[in-house]
């Protein structure tokens, strides 16, 4: 039993890392009042570009930087459209997703070496492998926490830092103020445009990193549609987390954990029809989402930034 739980935790953590990166990124973006639905496209672009860089240069560090650069650039486009041009955030985000996923599969067929008909699929590049912490990784139950790839270890620092920054620093307060009430923030002397550009771009960089985790660590290599809709799951996880980076981990672990459990059940030869088991992670997400929103509503603490999705115009009333 303990072995089973330990192995479930190991799988859950591996499956959850990319979700946590993108969720924390999107939380920061949405906290500034910008809704970015381009996650799926940014993750795919992060995955394809980081794999290509890793394959050609052999450097995982460069690959990760490339994923952040590409994710950041796409998010910057979104920021330009929605902050400066005040375009509809939903439309702009969706077009980033369409553009990103189309371009990613296009690049996947062009960036490869000639001997592989210029495809990236099927190539083996450098990858992040789990590094076990001596001693700690042998512990029962919690052992897997100390046997992860470097990108996951970074999350152990990133998540608490993201939480601390958001709730305990002046800059975090300014970020939240811009998302709740940009007019007041502006009056306080906060540069709303700068804040929104900055955190939308940072969000994109983290999302690109989430994509890189898929192609460099979780399922090493490039394949078409490697994200499999994870960008959309992240949007649900952000609400699930009530825009709190610390809770993002819980959501990603719950979603990934139930997925791992249902695959184990199927592999153990259960008689429950696969369709019901496949549904479980999504069903649980919906149920918990409803329950939590209800509870939050009762205690009058809705987490959504009040100005989310609204463009800010200084002169307008």
């Amino acid at each position: 039993m303990i072995d089973l739980i330990t192995s479930l935790l190991a799988i859950t953590m591996r499956a959850g890392a990319s979700l946590v990166y993108a969720t924390v990124g999107e939380i920061y973006t949405e906290r500034s009042g910008i809704l970015n639905l381009g996650l799926e496209g940014m993750m795919l672009m992060g995955a394809v570009s980081s794999f290509a860089v890793a394959y050609y240069t052999g450097s995982l560090v460069l690959a990760v930087l490339m994923a952040m650069l590409v994710g950041g650039l796409l998010a910057l486009t979104h920021a330009f459209l929605t902050v400066t041009m005040r375009a509809n955030q939903v439309v702009s985000g969706l077009s980033i997703t369409l553009f990103g996923s189309g371009l990613a599969s296009f690049l996947g067929q062009r960036l490869g070496p000639a001997e592989n008909s210029h495809y990236l699929v099927g190539l083996v590049g450098p990858k992040f492998t789990p590094i076990a912490v001596p001693g700690l990784s042998q512990l029962p139950l919690v052992g897997p926490i100390f046997n992860q790839d470097p990108l996951t270890y970074i999350l152990y620092l990133l998540v608490p830092a993201a939480w601390f920054y958001l709730y305990k620093t002046r800059a975090g307060l300014e970020l939240r103020a811009v998302g709740e009430n940009p007019r007041t923030a502006d009056a306080m002397g906060v540069d709303v445009v700068k804040v929104r550009y900055l955190y939308t771009t940072i969000g994109g960089m983290l999302t690109g990193l989430g994509g890189a985790h898929l192609s460099l660590a979780y399922t090493p290599g490039w394949s078409e549609n490697i994200t499999g809709g994870r960008g959309w799951i992240v949007i649900a996880l952000v609400i699930f987390a009530m825009w709190n980076p610390a809770r993002a981990v819980l959501g990603a672990l719950l979603f990934g954990g139930i997925n791992a459990v249902q695959f184990r059940l199927q592999a153990a030869g259960t008689n429950i029809p696969a369709a019901y088991l496949n549904m479980l992670p999504y069903l649980t997400t919906i149920v918990v989402l409803v329950a939590m929103t209800w509870w939050e509503a009762l205690s009058k603490r809705i987490g959504a930034p009040a100005a989310l999705g609204k463009p800010y115009m200084r002169e307008e009333k």
Partner: peptide, 19 residues
């Protein structure tokens, strides 16, 4: 016999194979 519930989700297929 197990199913992932998708045709193109590479990561899920990997998870299922590991299971």
């Amino acid at each position: 016999i197990a199913y992932t519930g998708s045709f193109g989700d590479i990561a899920k297929a990997a998870e299922l194979a590991k299971a």
